[in-house]
Every structure is written in C-alpha cells, then in structure tokens.
Simulated scan of single mutants.
Amino acid sequence: MPWQEAPDGAGDVPVTPARDGAAEDIRAFDGALHPDRADGLLAALALLRTDAAHGASLDFARLQHWQQHVLGTPQPPPFRDRPAFAKGGRERYGIGPGTRARLDACLAGSAADTERPVPLTARAARAYLDVCFFHPFDDGNARSAFLTLLFVLAREGVALDSVTLLRRVTFQADNPADALALARFLDVHLTETRRRAAPPGP
C-alpha cells in the first residue's frame, strides 16, 4: 500500500480533544449492547492510555493485556490456533508457525520512524487493519483493532473527539482502496478534533 500518500491529519502534533470521543462512543454503542461489554472496553482504554503515556511498544502481548479486560477472561486470551473466518465465512484468515511473529513485526511498524516517515493516520490505520486481518483472537478482534488504533494515536499524544466513522464501517481484506479509505476517515476525525479543540479567535 502507498501509505505515504495518506492524508496526514494536520501532522502528529499532540491534541487534547474537547471531549473524549472514544469513551463516549463506548458508553453509547457498546453500553447499549451490554453494560459489561462497555465496562471491559473502558478498562482496556484506560490501560492503553497508560501504556501509551509510557511509550510502550506495540505487540501481541500488549494486545493480550488489553483483550483480557475486553473479554473479561481470567487469563490473557491466547493467539488462535486454527484458521479464522469473518463476514459470514467470506474471508478466511490462515494460521502458520510464523503468524504471530509476522503480526508482531507489522505492529512494530506503527512507531514513528524518522528515516522512513509515514503519516500518523497511515500508521494507525495500518495497525488497525493488521489486527483485523491477522485476526489473532477467537473473539473481539474488531474491538482489539479499535483499541490498537487509539493506542497508536495516544502514543503521539493524540486523541479524538469522535470515532463514529472508525467503528461503523466494514473493510474488505482484498480491497486495497479500503485501507486508504480508513486513513482518510481518520484524517477527517483528526482534522475536526483539532479544529474544535482550537481556542476561538479574537
């Protein structure tokens, strides 16, 4: 994918939104499905923000830590050990001896790299899609992908005041255009968050 062509969301300058769009969406959307689902996601959101503030690296072990709260399991959920399917079986995600290592390598690419700069919107979108299409868990992969995107932003001091376009759209694994579409959706949210967070003019 030509990730360097993704819109840059007005750069990776830190931004504090006027409201916490991620938490509000979790309470409204996930809370309507089940209160426990929202509570688990909110707990994971708090953890990822702490991890981001400490500059933590992103890998499967980090996702496991969050996903234990997302799913409410007594132990961190393991990497799946069989092929996975999504969208009514139309998409199949294979499994092999090196699948987890490949996921970790992809997630490591979410960090800023001055030698090979890629816009923050692209790095966050790419990490989101990596989790979706590696499909590491038996359940809750969309929620894990959402948290991953938020972590990549938070590690750069960026948060959003709305996430609607990021959680209400389905992306196809075999459609390259969908990847840049996600980066554009993120750019829309990030640009609007910056605009609404800016102090009013004289």
Rank of each mutant, 00 (worst) to 15 (best):
V169G: 01
A6N: 05
P74V: 06
D178T: 09
A179C: 10
D178I: 11
V118H: 00
A32G: 13
A159L: 12
R90D: 11
T170V: 13
L48A: 05
H54Y: 05
A52V: 04
P78R: 03
R184L: 10
A127Q: 04
T99N: 00
P117A: 08
A38Y: 03
C106F: 00
R27N: 02
P17D: 10
D187G: 02
L71V: 08
G21W: 02
F133Q: 04
R195A: 15
T121Y: 01
D39K: 08
D178L: 06
D51F: 02
A61I: 01
A84Y: 01
A28C: 05
P14Q: 14
Y93N: 05
L165P: 07
E5L: 14
R100T: 12
H69W: 02
A61S: 12
P35N: 05
I26M: 03
A145I: 11
L71H: 04
L41G: 06
A127L: 04
Q75R: 13
K87P: 02
L45P: 01
A198L: 07
P17W: 00
H54L: 13
L165A: 14
P176V: 13
A46K: 12
G55Q: 06
P117Q: 10
K87A: 15
D161R: 11
A183Q: 07
A32K: 10
F137I: 07
D174T: 14
V169Y: 05
L42G: 11
L160F: 05
D113S: 06
R123E: 05
R116N: 15
T148L: 04
Y128E: 03
L120I: 15
D25C: 10
T148P: 09
F171G: 00
P78E: 07
S110Q: 08
A112G: 06
D113L: 05
L166D: 04
E91P: 00
R143L: 12
R102I: 07
P97D: 12
A173G: 05
Y93R: 09
D59M: 06
F60W: 03
V118E: 09
V131M: 07
A122L: 06
P17H: 09
G157T: 07
A125E: 08
T121G: 03
R37Y: 15
G89P: 03
F137V: 09
Q75D: 14
R167T: 15
H189Q: 14
L58Y: 08
A177P: 01
R90A: 15
D36Q: 14
T99L: 08
V131G: 08
R82M: 09
L166N: 06
R92A: 15
P35T: 10
G9V: 10
A52C: 01
P136I: 09
E115F: 04
D25Q: 11
A84I: 04
G140F: 02
P76L: 06
A101C: 00
R168C: 11
G88D: 08
L103D: 03
Y128S: 07
A22Y: 02
A159I: 03
E24P: 00
E91N: 08
P7V: 11
F146P: 00
L45K: 02
S144L: 12
R194I: 09
E24F: 02
D81M: 10
P7Y: 11
G31M: 04
